[in-house]
């Protein structure tokens, strides 16, 4: 996974390498929360977490639940989440499950 840990910036970038599915979600959860819960990141100045999902062709419900967990964790510290998706079907999935109401959703060109 790609992380931009420039903690002086207002934006923290987290990139997912591909699909976010039940079969790899535990590994991804461990990796993302390993970053979010590290003392340096916790005390960082960032207020926006940007999720890069442009490599994902499919996100299933287990993957969406991970993203919900991330939104909740970021909201708990008063921050916001922006997600960029590449695949139009993944974009539609976010809309159907109303995650667009909980984060700032953008579709990559």
């Amino acid at each position: 996974m790609k992380h931009n840990l420039d903690l002086s910036s207002a934006v923290l970038n987290v990139g997912f390498p591909g699909d976010v599915l039940s079969s790899n979600v535990d590994e991804l959860r461990h990796s993302v929360f390993g970053v979010l819960e590290s003392p340096a990141v916790k005390s960082g100045a960032w207020s926006t977490l940007r999720l890069d999902l442009t490599g994902a062709k499919m996100v299933d419900s287990a993957g969406l639940n991970l993203i919900v967990s991330i939104i909740k964790a970021v909201k708990a510290r008063g921050g916001q989440v922006r997600a960029t998706v590449g695949n139009p079907n993944v974009y539609r999935t976010f809309i159907f499950t109303r995650l667009d109401k909980q984060l700032d959703l953008a579709q990559a060109a």
Partner: peptide, 18 residues
Amino acid sequence: AADQLIDAHRGLMMINGM
């Protein structure tokens, strides 16, 4: 699941929509 941002049952929402 949709209203309360709980991290479950999102598959049901997906199916309802699709």
